[in-house]
Design a protein around this nucleic acid. Structure first.
Lengths: 200, 200
DNA sequence: CGTGCGATGTATCAAGTTGATACATCATCC
DNA sequence: GGATGATGTATCAACTTGATACATCGCACG
């Protein structure tokens, strides 16, 4: 159900949980959730919305004018009770599908509505996934180091360091999750000093 | 010609320039070129190969057994003269299509066969592209900082720092490109010290 | 006032891609 | 002898993309 990508469904449900939205606005917010890469096209959004309406997880409200006279037929979508339930179910999932590349970002974007233990499981799952990848890339590099030109090598080195950097980031997030949440003097976001870099 | 993605075509031509390959091996190498994300499926590789054969840029050699008796019909693909020309054309391109997200990695993977001035243009183009993105993300963050929960904020902060890191990386690459290439005591890869990190 | 322009807004479609699947050969181990 | 898994070619329904069409709105410029 709901096409190939459960991620899109989740993102839509999550966004509509905050407030009802029409397609255009929904798409803009989805672009924010999915990041600068990977944009969502209407060709996948509309079918997804159609499915969600058909399944009864969301409802469309065609006559929703904003404040004055009928502006135009903007179909506004909102979560139904079933949709809220479904969203809670999805937010409770903490298997591999939650920490793969396509879904992790979306899952974390809705961490505010996610239980603390689930958050932790997902972060740890993501970390092992990346450590796995680091191992693979790293060993592939030592196997082929001699044969590669400097550019390929630079590319792989940069990729490897990106993975390592994300692992460190996850380590910090996990540590923050595990530490007691109410301590004094702690900001909303883990206050990392931006590691006083040399200017270029 | 050659479907939607010119990038795949370029990658195939580039790989076949090094040596003739059959589909399976080609796909493995493409996976390396395109990175751990974004894998190439046969559903796009085979049509691409078919196109390239039809256009006369590559040729297939069905009877190519490796060394002994006929193993099985492995169709081996190799570059034609036209294909080599085409590859040179593509490697000479240094417009936006060379430094967008989908193509930059592939372009850089074949930098060893690319002219120095073209390399520099692509690296600089990529850098402006990322600086542009950094500006957008950065200003979007300051506009919405108050409204966002810590997780969304962490996500965006991490994204922003990833972009900044890639810009620094490009700065180093560009500096290396501009400095005289034959200096003594320089390794194959720019010998960056891995920035003595605190352990955690 | 009109008219051109860009943002907002809904919707569709040809062309292209994915993930699964089918099928066959080969090497290795039990 | 047969089970398992890597190598290898190939296809297809279901799905996504990028382009396009179309309409409304605000608003600046002459």
């Amino acid at each position: 159900m709901s096409r190939k990508t459960g991620v899109l469904e989740l993102a839509v449900l999550g966004l509509l949980h905050e407030s009802p939205l029409h397609g255009y606005e929904l798409r803009k917010r989805l672009s924010a959730v999915f990041g600068p890469v990977k944009r969502i096209s209407y060709g996948s959004l509309y079918p997804c919305l159609k499915d969600l309406v058909a399944t009864g997880l969301i409802a469309e409200d065609a006559a929703a004018s904003v404040s004055g006279v009928g502006k135009r037929g903007r179909t506004v979508y909102k979560l139904t009770a079933e949709g809220k339930e479904r969203l809670q179910d999805q937010l409770g999932e903490h298997g591999p599908s939650a920490w793969e590349d396509e879904s992790f970002g979306v899952r974390m974007a809705f961490f505010a509505q996610t239980d603390a233990d689930v958050r932790l499981k997902i972060l740890e799952g993501r970390r092992s996934r990346l450590e796995e990848r680091r191992e693979k890339v790293s060993s592939a590099m030592s196997r082929t180091r001699e044969k590669l030109d400097r550019y390929t090598l630079e590319l792989q080195q940069h990729g490897l360091e990106s993975v390592e950097r994300e692992v460190r980031w996850l380590n910090e997030l996990i540590a923050t999750e595990r530490s007691p949440a109410g301590g004094p003097g702690r900001g909303a976001v883990t206050a990392r000093p931006r590691s006083a870099k040399s200017p270029g």
